[in-house]
Every structure is written in structure tokens, then in C-alpha cells.
């Protein structure tokens, strides 16, 4: 088997698919050239600073779809600050592992979450620690060819 049952489950039945019309933050990462694009929408409860709702759309392989799906599950209902701590390693672990050459797809899931949160911060004039968006993070900046 290329993917384990958990990955296949998230690939076959992706959670939180779609878009949020009045989203508070939107992030898009990846590009069509490398074969994966993830777009994530978040709705934030601004009093409690909690991610109320999250939706995603993904163009990409099975692991790209599965990692975006599980990432949305992992951050839904969580404080925004906590979502920022989501690492690609945690995503892969939650899925019970991915083939080595598919790990790059999981990086995109982490980056999509960060891109959405960054967008939310920017739109709301919230100060944030730039360190948290470390190098390698390329939310929406990469050219889509």
C-alpha cells in the first residue's frame, strides 16, 4: 500500500471541504508547477481568539488532500496562537505516517494554516512575531505559473 488506512480515509472523505464566504483569513500556498496548491479559509471568534471554522480546497495528490483535511481538523476550535504551532511533523504523525517522498505535501498543510492566520492578523492589524513565519514559509508568495 502506498498510503495507510488513515491517510486513505482522509483522502476519500476529506473533512471541512469548501470555502467560507466571509472568512477572516485566507491563505493559499504551493503552485501548480510542483503539483500541489492548498487554499484555506478561517473564521475567527475575535473575542476569544479561537478558530471557529475552517475550510479548505486542494489541488494535489492523495497526501496533499489528506494532510489538508487532517490539518483543518487539528486547528478547528483551537486558539489562533495554538494553530500557529501546528507543524508538518504533527500532521504526518496524526496521519500515522506518509511515504518519505510525500513529506513535502505535508509541509504545505502547515504553511496553508500559517498563511491563513497571517492574513487574519494583517487584516485586523494584529501585531505578531515574524519569527513564527519562518523561512521556507511561502504563503501565497510563490508565483503560480
Amino acid at each position: 500500500m502506498l498510503y495507510n488506512e488513515k491517510v486513505m480515509d482522509h483522502f476519500r472523505n476529506p473533512r471541512n471541504v469548501g470555502e467560507i464566504e466571509d472568512a477572516d483569513g485566507v491563505g493559499e500556498v504551493g503552485n501548480a508547477k510542483c503539483g500541489d496548491i492548498m487554499k484555506m479559509w478561517i473564521k475567527v471568534d475575535k473575542e476569544k481568539m479561537i478558530i471557529e471554522d475552517v475550510k479548505f480546497m486542494t489541488f494535489g495528490c492523495g497526501s496533499a488532500i489528506a494532510t489538508s483535511s487532517i490539518a483543518t481538523e487539528m486547528i478547528k476550535g483551537q486558539p489562533v496562537e495554538k494553530a500557529l504551532e501546528l507543524s508538518n511533523k504533527a500532521v504526518v504523525e496524526a496521519l500515522g505516517g506518509l511515504p518519505a517522498y510525500k513529506l513535502h505535501c505535508s509541509v504545505l498543510a502547515e504553511e496553508a494554516v500559517k498563511a491563513a492566520v497571517k492574513d487574519f492578523y494583517d487584516k485586523n492589524g494584529i501585531e505578531y512575531d515574524k519569527e513564527k513565519f519562518k523561512p521556507g514559509f511561502h504563503g501565497g508568495e510563490e508565483e503560480v505559473s
Partner: peptide, 15 residues
């Protein structure tokens, strides 16, 4: 296509 951001952009004319 129903959840491809690329396809949505094509359909909306963004791309």
C-alpha cells in the same frame, strides 16, 4: 474539480 482551488480560479476567471 469541486474542491480544486485551481479549477475555481479558472471558473471564476481569476486565472
Amino acid at each position: 474539480r469541486s474542491f480544486s482551488p485551481l479549477w475555481k480560479d479558472y471558473e471564476k476567471g481569476v486565472k
